[in-house]
Amino acid sequence: MAPVKLGLVGIGKIARDQHLPSLSRSADFDLVAAASRNAGVDGIANFASTEAMLEAMPEVEAVSLCMPPQARHRAAAQALAMGRHVMLEKPPGATLSEVEHLAGLAAANGVSLYASWHSREAPGVEPARDWLKARRVRKVTVTWKEDVRHWHPGQDWIFEAGGLGVFDPGINALSIVTKILPFPIWLSGADLTFPENRQAPIAADLSFAGPNGEAVEAAFDFRQTGPQTWDIDVETDRGTLKLSMGGARLFVDGAARDLPPEAEYDGLYARFAALIAAGESEVDLAPLRHVADAFLLGRRQVAEPFLFDPAAAP
């Protein structure tokens, strides 16, 4: 099959760091256009909006949306209504309801919708899932702590309503946990820490329960400096498992397992191409549902104001 002609929307940090390199390696897609308010991609057609791109370029068959989640629904709905396949960066939207609406639009227009979770493509995730299938899980401990100033420099949108705050990275951990565990979990308690000048949390401590007494504890924090921590530790009836570096490394009973190199976004685009070829959609909302539950159930705590540039404090 000929490569699918694709338009990339939202040319920010994640697009430049991940999407553009993966698309340059992909035999499944031909990047022909980009849409972004403040940036562009050399060598292809550039537009200020998704609508302008799709109206001017009917040859674009699919779009990949990388803008902040608060603005994603409108662009996705336009593309689906115009008969284009859509891939959504994580989180797939600002609310569960809007993503469910997009799933209905995709079905009604006979196109594919892919709500992607890049951390599920980390090389240790599938081996971890396979190892856990034959064991009884007793306890899961998630430690996901990183420096927001490094990973989201100056990106105030992440602390606005709908930006998710620390759940922007934390949802990556939840996407892995919901992939590797052979049973469902549900939130039983949460403490959310909000800077007094922000609308989204900078830290969160979560407790989940499983159907047979399994316990899952998660600690997310955006204030980590120095080495970053993206770990999932699992205790079972027959040994321990550890995913570290966001799933790039896997340890069983303390011994490292051999894994292929990291290629998360290459895996996402391969999956998107397979869905298009099969005429199918994939919209797993479990990680976003857990985040929504945390906002529903969480106890709010207030911390000192947060500024990306501490020197700018009055």
Score class of each variant (00 low, 15 high):
residue 138 R to V: 06
residue 141 T to K: 15
residue 142 V to D: 01
residue 142 V to L: 04
residue 143 T to L: 12
residue 144 W to E: 03
residue 144 W to M: 08
residue 146 E to Q: 13
residue 146 E to A: 14
residue 147 D to S: 14
residue 148 V to A: 12
residue 149 R to W: 04
residue 156 D to L: 11
residue 158 I to R: 07
residue 159 F to M: 09
residue 159 F to I: 00
residue 160 E to D: 06
residue 162 G to R: 02
residue 163 G to P: 03
residue 163 G to R: 02
residue 166 V to Y: 06
residue 166 V to K: 04
residue 169 P to G: 03
residue 169 P to F: 10
residue 171 I to S: 10
residue 171 I to V: 06
residue 171 I to M: 12
residue 172 N to P: 04
residue 172 N to V: 06
residue 173 A to G: 06
residue 176 I to Y: 09
residue 176 I to C: 10
residue 177 V to D: 02
residue 177 V to Y: 01
residue 177 V to S: 05
residue 178 T to F: 08
residue 179 K to F: 02
residue 181 L to R: 02
residue 181 L to E: 08
residue 183 F to Y: 07
residue 183 F to K: 05
residue 184 P to C: 09
residue 187 L to Y: 07
residue 187 L to F: 03
residue 188 S to T: 15
residue 188 S to N: 11
residue 189 G to V: 07
residue 189 G to I: 02
residue 190 A to C: 05
residue 192 L to S: 03
residue 194 F to K: 02
residue 195 P to T: 08
residue 195 P to L: 09
residue 195 P to V: 13
residue 195 P to R: 11
residue 196 E to Q: 15
residue 197 N to Q: 13
residue 199 Q to G: 03
residue 200 A to N: 05
residue 201 P to N: 08
residue 201 P to R: 10
residue 203 A to F: 11
residue 205 D to H: 11
residue 205 D to L: 07
residue 206 L to V: 00
residue 207 S to N: 13
residue 210 G to H: 10
residue 213 G to V: 00
residue 215 A to W: 00
residue 217 E to Y: 06
residue 218 A to C: 09
residue 218 A to Q: 02
residue 219 A to Y: 01
residue 220 F to D: 03
residue 222 F to Q: 00
residue 223 R to D: 11
residue 225 T to F: 08
residue 226 G to C: 05
residue 228 Q to K: 10
residue 229 T to P: 05
residue 231 D to S: 14
residue 232 I to K: 09
residue 232 I to E: 06
residue 232 I to W: 09
residue 235 E to C: 00
residue 237 D to I: 09
residue 239 G to T: 01
residue 240 T to V: 06
residue 242 K to M: 07
residue 244 S to F: 07
residue 245 M to I: 04
residue 246 G to P: 15
residue 248 A to G: 07
residue 249 R to T: 13
residue 249 R to I: 02
residue 250 L to Y: 04
residue 251 F to M: 12
